[in-house]
Design a protein around this nucleic acid. Structure first.
Lengths: 316, 316
DNA sequence: TTGAAAGCGCTAACAC
DNA sequence: GTGTTAGCGCTTTCAA
């Protein structure tokens, strides 16, 4: 394939002149510019992006660390990132980790070896202490709040969100409230959920927390465990609308009325919950993704909070 | 940041020796290897990947053209690609196009400018004629069948799938069968669905085809249009399980029994359909994605068919 | 306004 | 086994 030298030779100019027309630099005579452009078109020449990246020391490419891609929440985040990347002519790399700390670090290393200008961490398994050292090689943006000055954040005040949701349930007269989570205590979200619960309701009966919930099926299993308890919960706060949907279906099988016998509220305002009229806490993850991207390309270490909103529908 | 010359100097060897230990080449004395390794560790050195890519003329990176990322089908495909990429230590770039032909071509161009070794097209808006010229710059794999010898394919025999599904419905006694599609006639899938319908049932009453269906909500709207027709369909073949779910809900609102009053069958075997016991045609898109990836890195132009399977549940 | 030349950081052919 | 050196394809001083 033709390179910049071939173009220069055929156009009868130097490579610097070709480079100048390639990058729209001023101080190129119209005649030479036209001649170069003609040869470029003739030869169907495209500059090698890798060579450009090498010399410019930037790639206009950012990575998104995502434990899973087939998950509503991460998908929304990615969607936000992609939205902005297309507008700003950046390119994005998906970095699946399955919460493997080694893999996570390997992804961060792509900053160090110059493959990526920045990385957005949608969720992580490593401690910040292991992550921050990579900030000197490129921008690191988190989709959660952290004090670390070298990390930019596009975050939701999850604690406030959980608190308000539990309080809402309490205000509606519920005292037996259960909830589901994705991961266990190793997860920041889970910890905050538990703390918010305790703040509102006091001690958490262990049987009121069900882990490893991601899908509708998981929601059904969770409901199976919860709805046969002696002290059956009258409300369940699900960690997603799919899970909430599963709970709804299992409750229906038991002929329990929603919300009379069981109040249900989910998270993320997914299409799946709309038909069932499920209440939900929308953490606006698409916006979080967009904001995270913007911070990444601005190399900003700001902490930007994205507001959440509780969407009340008949299920509570 | 340190480069290979710094390492060489500090270790008292030449850059080639450093390069050799970096790439685990034989013919390096143990003593030098150890010395080099020590300096590498001391200086916390990582080779610049861009420079390596430039000289090796490959990136071990492949792109996935996806009209949308927040869509069940494309998400499964991407999931398959990601599965294999992690195993084989490749990296993947998501290329959203929203079916914009210009953008699609711009993505293909990343082959030409050496950013990508290969591209997987999950769905396209350009004609093959516009796409194939890019095959000389890198591997192009399609997730649909095409004759073009320069394109590898990981595909489902969609025509057979649609045919079998319509035939199944006919065998169950249905003669008034409607269906939903995503895009209109510009889409290959839509065309095949129509042809299969005509093959089984003859002329297609225009009101039996509803387009632009993606979500549960779209399914509800489709059902609204279909279930009030004078000649109300007794079966609906939805283009996805979310859409099928919307149809189910709307039918429930009308107090129609499934499958007695209305048979419903969806596609892609999504979690959302399992709770509702919806029948579905599983096109095994995760496998398609995995296969597409394998073809991409083998630079293969084979045409590999992935079998579909009809999953019969109580909804038909 | 233009061109020569010095890199960017690395690999690999070649010579020793 | 090891080092020298010529690139990979481009951008950007610097001098003319």
């Amino acid at each position: 394939m033709a390179n910049i030298h071939d173009i220069a030779k055929r156009a009868g100019v130097s490579v610097s002149t070709v480079s100048r027309v390639l990058n729209n630099h001023p101080y190129v005579s119209e005649s030479k510019r036209a001649a170069v452009q003609r040869v470029i078109d003739e030869m169907d020449y495209t500059p090698n992006r890798v060579a450009v990246d090498l010399i410019r020391k930037e790639t206009r490419r950012i990575g998104v660390i995502m434990p899973y891609n087939n998950n509503q929440a991460f998908d929304q985040l990615l969607h936000g990132v992609l939205n902005r990347s297309v507008e700003l002519d950046y390119t994005v790399m998906v970095l699946p980790t399955k919460y493997d700390p080694e893999k996570e670090l390997a992804c961060l290393k792509m900053l160090k070896n110059k493959q990526l200008d920045g990385i957005i961490i949608t969720s992580r398994s490593n401690a910040w202490k292991a992550i921050t050292p990579y900030a000197k090689y490129g921008t690191i943006i988190a989709c959660e709040y952290t004090d670390h000055p070298e990390i930019g954040c596009a975050y939701i005040d999850r604690y406030a969100s959980y608190l308000e949701t539990f309080q809402l349930l309490k205000d509606k007269g519920h005292s037996r409230v259960a909830f589901t989570t994705a991961r266990g205590e190793e997860s920041n979200s889970t910890q905050l959920t538990i703390r918010a619960y305790q703040q509102v309701f006091g001690a958490l009966p262990p049987e009121y927390q069900i882990r490893d919930c991601y899908s509708i099926d998981d929601g059904m299993h969770a409901a199976k465990q919860l709805l046969h308890l002696d002290r059956r919960p009258t409300a369940i706060y699900a960690n997603g609308d799919e899970v909430a949907t599963g709970i709804y279906h299992y409750a229906a099988q038991l002929k329990l009325e929603v919300p009379e016998d069981l109040a249900i509220i989910g998270q993320e305002n997914q299409p799946v919950g709309i038909g069932l009229q499920l209440s939900t806490v929308d953490h606006q993850l698409v916006k979080v993704g967009e904001q995270a991207f913007d911070l990444a390309i601005e190399k900003s270490m700001e902490k930007v909070e994205i507001p959440y909103r509780i969407i009340k529908r008949p299920s509570i």
